[in-house]
Nucleic acid binder design. Sequence first.
RNA 1: GGGCACUUGGCGCAGUUGGUAGCGCGACUGUUUUACACACAGUAGGUCGGGGGUUCGAAUCCCUCAGUGCCCACCA
Length: 789
Amino acid sequence: MPELPKKYNIGEREKHWQDFWAKEDVFAFDEKSDKPIYSVDTPPPYVSADHLHTGHIMSYSQAEFVVRYKRMRGFNVYYPMGFDDNGLPTERFVEKKHKVNKKTISRPDFIKLCLEETKKGAETYRKLWTDLGISVDWSKTYSTINDLCQRRSQWSFIDLYKKGKIQRAKKPILWCTTCQTAIAQADLDAEERKGKIAHIKVKVKDTKEDLIFATTRPELLPACMGISVNPDDKRYQHLIGKTVVLPLTGQELELTADKEGVDPEFGSGVVYFCSYGGGECIEWMSRHPEAKPTHILDPGGKFNKLAGNYAGLSVGEARKKILADLDKAGALVKIESLKNVTHVHERCGTDVEYIPTEQWFIKLLDDKDKLLEFGAKLNWHPADMAKKYVDWVESLKWDWCISRQRYYGVPFPLWYCKECQEVILPEEDKLPVDPSTDTPDKPCPKCGSKEFTPELDVMDTWMTSSMTPYIIRDVAQDDRVFPNTLRPQAFEIIRTWLFYSVAKAYLHDDSIPFKDVMISGHGLDEHGRKISKSLGNYVEPSAILEEYGADAIRYWATGASLGANMRYSEEEIKKGKKTVNKLWNATKFCLSHFEDLDLDKKVELEPADQWVLDELYNTIVNATKDFDNYEYSKARNNTDAFFWQTFTDNYLEFIKYRLYNQEEVGEESFVAAQQTLYVCISAILKLYAPIMPFITEELYQAYFKDIDGATSIHVSAWPEAKGEWSMDENKRQEFIDALDVIWKIRKYKSDQQISLGKEIDEFAVKNKDLPEKYFKFIEKAARVKKLIK
RNA sequence: GGGCACUUGGCGCAGUUGGUAGCGCGACUGUUUUACACACAGUAGGUCGGGGGUUCGAAUCCCUCAGUGCCCACCA
């Protein structure tokens, strides 16, 4: 006779099942199987994240619910895990933690530190995922800096280079003066600020008239390229072509016409353009070939000698000094405050500048239509997240700058010929290469020189991340996993990870990288604020795991529907723990009545049995549909309602008299109750298994495994709804009427403050249509000696 | 400035084709009934953001206003 201990020791048993799953390889991808494949391109977390919080738990759990469900539905699940230890985020983490920067540490030492830190980070993550019960196949892992990923990233570069999709160009590019590297449009954050706009006077040389223009970048006055007005602006038409003289520098410029860049309605209708105040200055320059840019800002963020008196100053310092000088010269009309939006580098918050440098670009702007088309081919969950992708593609202004002037990252696989500057690429079978230590096999094909200069820039971290659909195919060594089935990820990286992935698969193979997209929301603190390190409003996952267990916190993670932000709630976690406890106790009760259980014996079910089975099948149908639609939240609600209300509060109470009085009710009634109980509880465990893998495994292994036959509940078959609505409508209505009497008796007892367990002598049934064959059921279920009409 | 979403009992949320408002938590009143007091039974609490419209009938469709959140955009 199966028997469970009185209490379930969460900490000890969760650890036990983690080990069991690992030992039995329960989550292994089966290369030999011909079952349909379900492959998941899971976000490789930044191992440099030094504070894991409940938001991480939420998003990874939400995807994992679906993965476990799919496994039970018979899919050959491929669920690898990567670690993103590449690129700028790691460098910044190391710089902060070890108080070093590019100047104070050598490239090899720096890379060594990065590798050490990322190794630590990977261990932290792996432990958390294991504790959480994330069912990853740990034999299938990658890290974005390892050889396999470097090879794939370099292959991507070479393939696109050969396809003509990559170009090297020198032009003003988005630049971070703190990180001292070029960055891409996707690396920008917009910050709304209260800025200042200065109104500055210039003289028209011949007529001595004053013109006033306004600018938020007065410090770039020494780099002024031109001044324009709108050609339709009657106020200034007569001045077009005249020479104007700038204050301080005395620079003489021709007043030009520019229809696109100047709105006569705004400000004074006079605009000055400098190198480079912003994107609009660059656009203006493209319309004015006569313009001569003066590059006064160095990559380190200081003005150079071309800035004259302002050389050596930072942007902020120069701004102050120039404004003071303008004021002294009588050229400063006024300074107004202005709410404007400034673009900053998302990694460090520094205002971006535009500095002309030579960089590598992937051409994307030409393919906007195709990128929109391929984005639309994905199945977006929730559907409206597709809009964020469309908005981003439509707003693209720059090709993708993929070169970074940094140390730690995947090197570009190329050299330049010292003689003729020809770009030399390695053979694909030599990848990955490090051009700073490796050399080309052959002399320059163009000029025969054997002298080469390595490209020392590294690639944008997204160059690698965008290849994860390919990388996990490389890891599996199985072409069937591409395109991947599912890409789960957070909404804020739609414009980066998702977008770049789609772009790459399109450019390389004219393919989509994955079929389904599942977008999760943000984790918020209990007050609804975004979790952030500076607010300190996050809870250590390890502390919660220890106190409540993984099942409980996973239960909380089902609380928000897909894509919605979710607050941290200890109450919800407690509810999860209660559900674990309830499952334990309900199963304990069932098992204590499973002695001599004979599932094959043909018996006639009683109305209560049919009723609960109908409810169960209805629940299964709904939960299945919900999981198929990535609506794990609804699936859990449906399962909760059946388990807590229908099954435990009602059905168990209804059949206790049959289970405890086998002699009196007869063998058939007893066995019918046993069999129904078995069907219900085994299905309940399976319905909860994707959400609460530990407790359900514990209970499955305690008894059901021997009958059901699977190694683990997580590879057992998902329950089926066999006899949906087996009860005919009349009979069903009669039973509902009987339930109504039970509810009335419960209310009566509650009103009288009588224990529900106390048997009352009699109760009058008002419903004259209720057949007397239900009387015994009601009397026993509600504990009344005699029902009277 | 443009776009998207949200606004339902104290709190957090469901309400898929329009047809008498639901759930969880919390509150309150009770009950230790041989699975569980991490439980059970019961009670109270909302004119579904404001206004207008379509309809026999709207939380659900349309218009408008307001508030909140997010994405995008350096109107110099």
